[in-house]
Deep mutational scan, measured.
Amino acid sequence: PEEVRRLVEELYRKGVSPEQVKKILKKQGIDEREIEKVLRRIG
Rank of each mutant, 00 (worst) to 15 (best):
K14H: 08
E10Q: 11
S17G: 11
R5F: 15
V8P: 00
V16N: 07
E36R: 04
R33W: 07
L25Q: 00
E3N: 09
R40H: 15
R41S: 15
G43Y: 15
E2H: 08
Q28H: 07
S17H: 10
K14Y: 07
L39H: 01
R33H: 11
E32K: 05
K37D: 15
R13D: 06
R33A: 13
Q28D: 06
V8G: 01
V21K: 00
P1M: 12
I42H: 06
K37S: 09
L39Y: 02
I24Q: 08
E3F: 06
K27S: 10
I24P: 00
V4Y: 04
R40I: 15
S17F: 07
Q28N: 06
R6F: 08
K37L: 09
E9H: 11
R5Y: 15
L25W: 00
G15S: 04
K37N: 11
K22G: 04
L11R: 00
L39N: 01
G15C: 08
K37M: 08
K27N: 12
R40V: 15
I35C: 02
Q20A: 12
P18G: 09
K23W: 10
E10S: 09
E9P: 00
P18A: 12
L11E: 01
I35R: 00
I42W: 12
R6Q: 09
E3T: 07
E32V: 06
E19Y: 14
V16M: 10
G29E: 03
I30K: 02
V21E: 00
E9T: 10
R5D: 14
Q20R: 10
K27L: 11
V21I: 15
L39Q: 03
S17K: 13
K22W: 10
K26A: 09
V16G: 05
I35N: 00
G29I: 01
R40D: 15
R41W: 15
I30R: 02
E9Y: 14
R13L: 08
E3K: 09
K22Y: 13
E36K: 04
E36Y: 02
V8M: 02
R33Q: 11
R5K: 14
Q28G: 06
I30G: 01
P18W: 04
E3V: 10
R33T: 11
